[in-house]
Computed example of a mutant assay.
Amino acid sequence: MDKNQSTAITTLFLDIGGVLLTNGWDRAARRRAAETFSLDLPETEERHHLTFDTYEEGKLTLDEYLDRTVFYEERSFERQTFKDFMYAQTEAYPDMIDLVCRIKKQYGIKIAIVNNEGRELNEYRIRKFGLDKFVDFFISSCFVHFRKPDADIFRMALDVALVKPEEVLYIDDRAMFVSVAEGLGINGFQHKNFEETSRFLGNLGWQ
């Protein structure tokens, strides 16, 4: 993608975890949970991997996910205590949020989120960190029942935003998901850190 193409870009598709916020419930967070609540980490990880995709697709509630992964046996702590811990794992990347907000304000770019996340975590993170204040569309797996790397989630995002693939720049920290989007003709960029992404966008003419 060269600088001249920036004039054709009308819409940014963004991931949340790893781009605007830290990951919500990743391996490191689950390890901290196992240490904090004295859980059997291998057992918790196995149960997580067997059921989390279904949760992210919006086919399980958070309580149902926890029934299968944590509260399948009696625990010494309350369910709400564990949920509060889950929510507390998220931190913002304020530089990235500010960058996206400035681009939207200055250039009139539409912003859409395309992410994999379960409903309760997704809604908490969106509201807690004010993503709904500048994002136009949320194409979250829990809302649309597709999850990356299924290309249909990107097709749905294109339909909702009413844009052609070549009008979109998609930013994600995972190379595979960027590659899937590029396979549909969407311009892609793998986010690694604020400095590289800021430089890339600046080279496109978005100062």
Results as ranks from 00 to 15, higher is better:
E56H: 02
W206A: 09
R199Y: 12
G58M: 04
N115V: 04
S140E: 10
D159W: 05
W206C: 07
M86H: 02
G188W: 05
Q89D: 10
E43Y: 06
G130S: 03
E35V: 12
L39G: 06
V163R: 00
A181T: 00
P42V: 03
Y55E: 01
I126M: 00
D159M: 04
R79L: 02
D2V: 11
L169A: 04
I186N: 02
T7M: 06
I109Y: 03
F129Y: 14
H191I: 13
R125V: 09
D15R: 04
V135N: 06
A157T: 01
T7W: 06
F129R: 05
R199D: 15
T44E: 14
I103G: 01
V180Y: 01
R79C: 08
P149R: 02
E78P: 07
K128V: 04
E196T: 15
D53V: 02
A33L: 12
K110F: 07
R199V: 14
G183D: 09
S140T: 15
G58L: 06
M1G: 10
L60K: 01
L204C: 07
D159Q: 14
F37S: 13
F85H: 06
L66H: 06
N23D: 15
I153E: 04
D15M: 11
L169I: 13
F138M: 06
E73N: 03
L66E: 01
I113C: 02
E43D: 14
R30H: 03
Y87A: 10
V70T: 09
E91D: 12
R125P: 03
L121H: 11
K164F: 11
A33I: 05
H191L: 10
F85N: 03
T69C: 08
V100L: 05
L131M: 08
R75A: 03
E91K: 09
L60H: 05
S198N: 15
G17D: 12
D15Q: 10
I153S: 00
K105P: 04
H48K: 03
E64T: 11
F137S: 00
K133C: 12
V168W: 01
K110V: 10
D150F: 01
V144P: 04
S141P: 08
V114C: 05
D159V: 07
K104G: 04
E123K: 09
E123Y: 07
L184H: 10
W25D: 10
F13T: 05
L169E: 04
L14K: 03
Y72M: 01
V160I: 15
I139M: 08
V135L: 09
L184Y: 01
Q207N: 15
L62M: 08
V178F: 04
K148L: 00
E57D: 12
D95K: 14
I171M: 14
G188P: 06
E56K: 02
E196C: 13
D2H: 11
Q89V: 02
E120V: 12
E123C: 05
I109L: 12
F71P: 01
G118A: 09
F143G: 00
E195A: 15
E167L: 05
Y55V: 01
F200Q: 05
V163S: 04
G24S: 12
F85Y: 09
E35N: 14
A175C: 00
T81R: 13
W25Y: 13
K128D: 10
K164T: 13
L158K: 11
E91A: 11
L169Q: 09
D172S: 13
F189M: 07
Q207Y: 13
Y55T: 06
V178H: 09
E64Y: 10
D132A: 11
L62D: 10
N187C: 07
L158N: 00
I16A: 01
